[in-house]
Computed example of a mutant assay.
Amino acid sequence: MIRAFAIYATAALAEIAGCFSVWAVLRLSAPSWWLLPGFASLVAFAYLLTLIEADAAGRAFAAYGGIYIAASLVWLRAVEGFHPDRWDILGAALSLAGAAIIIFGPRPA
């Protein structure tokens, strides 16, 4: 369980960083070379999700969604300097609850 959370958290950081590199180039006038580490980060994100023990890729991706939403709000605060509001927090909590249902829901053997 701790291993899966660490993989999901690292994958979220990799995905957010990769997407932010494109955002920075197109919206913040960052130099175009920022795309190179950004694309490498996106490849790392995709690889990391293959390390999740799941019976189906879609289930691993769906559970990851909740972690991604929460990590995006951490990024919002830590990197972009914006404070998440109560609606951000509520949305993240609901998405994490959904991820928990996907991860811990009973499945037929």
Rank of each mutant, 00 (worst) to 15 (best):
L36V: 14
I67Y: 10
A30M: 03
G38N: 04
G38P: 05
F82H: 14
D85P: 13
P84K: 00
L42D: 06
I67M: 12
I7K: 09
A99C: 03
L94M: 12
A57W: 08
A6H: 05
R27P: 05
T50P: 04
G65W: 00
V74N: 01
A9E: 09
P106L: 12
L49E: 04
A46T: 11
A46N: 11
A9R: 07
W23N: 04
E80Y: 04
D88R: 05
P31K: 07
F45H: 09
E53N: 07
L96D: 03
V43L: 10
L49G: 10
F104Y: 15
L73M: 06
V74I: 13
G66H: 08
A14G: 09
I101Q: 15
I7Y: 03
L28I: 01
F61R: 08
Y8T: 02
V79E: 05
T10D: 04
S72C: 03
S29H: 13
A17M: 13
I102R: 06
A14K: 01
V25Y: 08
A54V: 00
D88M: 02
A60C: 08
A109S: 15
G91R: 04
L42S: 09
L26W: 08
M1P: 14
G18A: 10
F5K: 08
L48E: 03
R3L: 11
S95C: 11
D85S: 05
A46I: 06
A24I: 06
I101W: 15
A97H: 01
L48I: 07
T50G: 03
V74R: 09
L51C: 09
L96S: 02
W34Q: 05
A14R: 03
C19R: 10
G58K: 02
A54S: 15
V74W: 06
A17F: 14
L36R: 04
Y8N: 11
A56K: 13
G98Q: 10
A100M: 14
L76C: 00
R3P: 00
I103F: 15
R3Y: 14
A54C: 07
F20M: 13
S29M: 02
G81H: 00
A100N: 07
F20K: 12
A99Y: 05
V22Y: 12
F61M: 10
A70V: 00
A70L: 07
I89L: 02
V22W: 09
W75Q: 12
I16K: 13
A9N: 12
Y47R: 02
H83C: 09
Y47Q: 03
G65Q: 07
V22Q: 10
Y8V: 02
G18P: 09
D55R: 14
A24K: 03
I101T: 13
G91T: 01
E15T: 05
G38T: 00
P108M: 11
F104E: 14
A56F: 11
A109E: 14
L49F: 05
T50D: 07
L51E: 06
A56N: 12
A63Y: 01
A17D: 03
G66D: 11
L35T: 03
I69F: 13
A24G: 05
